[in-house]
């Protein structure tokens, strides 16, 4: 870190265990990550990687019985150390979250208008008329046509894409500094996804928001974020600038993920599968969590967990990171997988 300013959000050796099946199981092994104010970071991972729990730890929304080691700091203040009143202030004024399935986070019996004004009227004590005017403006900001009519409708009358825009408007209503978006477009069609992401991107730009975007889609994260952080089995395995992702990803897992989803419009782009399945954090052995699936794994990888190390202007926790030819850096045409050993699924 070269800047002296405090990051808006900082995970400092975060480790989380949960009581599962009678024992305390590790769900996040180690996350170190700093988000400068106004930046956008994509936290990418598959199921069981711990990406959603990492996001939830920011709002103190971890499940009952969770034990936290290390720290999560919002604007320098430790979230695990916050009292209930401080947590409420954090959630109602400073940080807002948008979830994957809007329908499970909105009361189906109340109108969209009730939902949107609730926090403003009951928590922030704003007059109803003022709150209503504010949320109508917000709906327009997220490009909901016919905002007044939508205010009177119930969630069941809105499509998934429209409802997700309502959720974004609701998140923006508290004028947060940080937006946490947990797979906000995963349940949407691909054309709707593009629209919703464009709206989040636009709001971020206009309002100078800091964004932590949780997704399983590397390409989507790279499109709207400045930096990408990749998680696997509860470990943050790589972090690097989004523009360098495709060419320079150093961790073998990041590269394997990229090769599993080639660009559909590039003829003959080969699909390379990774054997095995993603591990859950608690299944990770003593070595590198990705070692059992890694084509480049050596004996050391199975024995010793790699520490995150600096790779160019990023970090990777890999004993044998993919070496990038400095001559080839920044050439879009370079095949990033050329040096990898080819693996096919059985």
């Amino acid at each position: 870190m070269t800047t002296a300013t405090v990051p808006l959000l900082e995970f400092d050796s975060l480790r989380v265990t949960l009581p599962l099946g009678g024992t305390q199981r590790t769900v996040i092994h180690r996350v170190d990550l700093a988000l400068a104010a106004g930046s956008a970071v994509g936290l990418v991972g598959e199921s069981g990687s711990g990406k959603s729990l990492t996001a939830r730890s920011v709002l103190g929304l971890l499940p009952e019985g969770a034990r936290i080691e290390g720290d999560v700091r919002f604007d320098g203040a430790s979230v695990p150390a916050m009292r209930q009143a401080e947590l409420r202030t954090l959630r109602s004024r400073h940080a807002a979250m948008v979830f994957q399935d809007p329908r499970t986070h909105i009361n189906p019996l109340r109108t969209v208008g009730d939902f949107l004004t609730e926090a403003l009227v009951s928590v922030r004590r704003e007059p109803r008329a003022q709150a209503e005017a504010k949320v109508v403006a917000l709906l327009r900001e997220v490009h909901v046509a016919d905002a007044e009519r939508r205010m009177r409708q119930r969630p069941s009358e809105l499509s998934g894409g429209l409802l997700q825009r309502v959720m974004i408007a609701s998140a923006l209503a508290v004028e947060p500094r940080l937006l946490l978006a947990d797979e906000p477009t995963t349940a949407l069609d691909v054309t709707t996804q593009a629209e919703v992401m464009a709206i989040i991107d636009e709001a971020r730009e206009n309002r100078g928001l800091t964004l932590l975007f949780i997704t399983h889609d590397l390409a989507l994260a790279a499109a709207v974020c400045d930096r990408i952080a990749v998680m696997y089995a509860g470990h943050l395995v790589e972090e690097l600038p989004a523009r360098r992702l495709v060419g320079d990803a150093a961790h073998r897992y990041t590269r394997a993920l990229l090769a599993s989803r080639p660009d559909p419009t590039v003829p003959d782009a080969r699909l390379r599968a990774v054997d095995g399945r993603p591990l859950s954090a608690f299944e990770a052995g003593p070595g590198c969590p990705f070692a059992p699936r890694c084509a480049a794994a050596q004996e050391l990888c199975h024995r010793e967990r790699p520490e995150p190390r600096a790779v160019a202007d990023g970090r990777a926790a890999c004993h044998f990171p993919h070496a990038v030819d400095p001559q080839a850096v920044d050439l879009d045409a370079v095949d990033p997988h050329a040096a990898d050993t080819e693996r096919t699924a059985r």
Binding site: T191, Q193, A194, E195, A198, I199, L220, A222, D263
Partner: peptide, 18 residues
Amino acid sequence: RDLIDSVPRPGWKPRRRT
């Protein structure tokens, strides 16, 4: 075309249609 243009890929930026 719209469908293809909506698929995230390197260099892609999300765009609003409306």
